[in-house]
Amino acid sequence: MRRLSIARREALTDLWLAGPATTVMLLFVFVPVVIVAVLSFTDYQFGAGSFAWIGLDNYARLFGSTLGQRAIANTLTYVAIVIPLSVGFGLAVALGLHRMMAWAPWLSHTLRTIYFLPVAATLVAMSVAWQMVLHPSLGVVNQTLASLGGTPQDWLSDRGLVLYTLAAIGIWQTVGYNMVLFLAGLVAIPPELYDAADVDGAGHGWSRFSTVTWPMLGPTTLFVLVVTATNAFRVFETVATLTRGGPAFASDTLVYALYREGFVYFKAGYASAITMVFFAFLLVLTLAQFRIVEKRVHYR
């Protein structure tokens, strides 16, 4: 056997180490992105033998039809509800638990575990549980409402309510995650700053929060906001489990619409256009996230 030159051997080694991962990445990420972009300009249907170029028609249909507009509007509404509440509650819980660490660490730790539980739990299974919690007649929510003299609601089949119900479940699921990020941010605040605030007469309550805590949490908050937003944009599991976009598309979202059009109705071209719009939204958010992460590193 002829020996290869060292340079040749080294090059082969690099290929052997980095080649497979690069290949699968090209195959399963980059080639599909190109294909989906191309498909979005066609009327291709899964299983069809041919397709025609239809330019921007798919996009026109998405932005022009009530159905398309509704999916976009629903997604934006959902995101607009989930972001402030999930981030706000996350911050509030983190502040409360952080303070509790000083006098009841065990209790604080237990509560933290409870708040984080939905993040680790299987969302689909938990959605099935939520379905029973919100069941019109057998659910604990309506039963409690009834016993208190309130009006039971059709939480998941009332057109006006359903999106808010899904948003509430979305908040329920993500508060714990945001809490953990905020807690990490709080722990990282140097205690000397609080001492300094104390000396300056800003050591208590709101002034303590506004002079030290909040400014120091700034970068964390930005990061949490963007992560919450990207996750909210992808809402799918709860929709698919609880409403299937219904009733009457009142809870239709971008990812669910992409699933329904693409994989239930097999309209690959149209679904690709939905994909591209969804991608565009996320790209803007993720790029923002990258910049924030970068900044966070720079601050250190």
Partner: peptide, 29 residues
């Protein structure tokens, strides 16, 4: 190695792509 920056660039770019975006072509394939 040659192409190291390129491969790392690919990795960073791939981080930007949510799985949902690639679902249709992968299903087709």
């Amino acid at each position: 190695f040659r192409g190291r920056t390129f491969v790392f660039g690919l990795v960073l770019a791939a981080l930007l792509v949510p799985f949902h975006v690639t679902a249709i072509p992968i299903f087709l394939g």
